[in-house]
Every structure is written in structure tokens, then in C-alpha cells.
Amino acid sequence: MTAAPEPARDPGLQPERTRLAWRRTTLAATVAAVLAGRAALHADVTAPRIAVSGLCALLWLAFLALANARIHALAAGPEPAAIAPRRATAAALCTVGLAVCGAVLIL
């Protein structure tokens, strides 16, 4: 009795490296979001500033969800498909949103 043949595995560990790249990027987004929250609540705490910091938290959650979905897709098969442009754009727009929130908080 023989075991089922293992699916072909990339010796270069490309899906794993891509997964870790998503993790690193999520960590960077976390740092930026924490700094944004600090900026919002460090000075005088007003309703608009709380709203902006809430928006930053939402953007961070959106990025986290994108990263998790992509990590699941990467783990699904031996040869994962390329990321959909819409998801890549959404990840970039989360970053842009954080920067815009930052500009609002500074001014």
C-alpha cells in the first residue's frame, strides 16, 4: 500500500515567500495605523478626530481582510493564480486612505 503522490511542490517556496510578504506588509500597515490612532487621540480629542481614527481602524481591518483572503488563496493549491487587479488596487487604496487620514489629522 503506497501513499498518494505528493502534489508537485515548488522548491523555491514561492507561495510561502508571497505569504510572508503579505504578513510583513500587514505588519507595516499595523504600525502606520497605530501611529495614525496616536495622532488622532494625542491632541485634543474631538468628534471629527475620533471619526478619522475610526476610519483608519476600518482601513486597517480592510487591509487585514485582503491579506487573509490572499493568504488563503495562496494555500489553496500547488499553483496559485495571480492576484486579481481589483484586490491589488484595494490594498493600495487602503494605503492611500491612511495617508489621506494622516493629512487630515495634521492640518
Binding site: 507595516a28 500597515a29 502606520a32 501611529l35 491612511l98 495617508a99 494622516g102 489629522l105 495634521i106
Partner: peptide, 17 residues
């Protein structure tokens, strides 16, 4: 590149704070 962008944004927050 996205991490580079996030680092620049974090740097902006850091300068301000």
C-alpha cells in the same frame, strides 16, 4: 513597494508626533 509607501506614511506621522 506598498511597504515602502507605508514606511513613508509612518514617517510622516512620526515627524508630526
Amino acid at each position: 513597494w506598498l511597504r515602502t509607501a507605508l514606511a513613508l506614511i509612518g514617517g510622516g506621522f512620526a515627524v508630526d508626533q
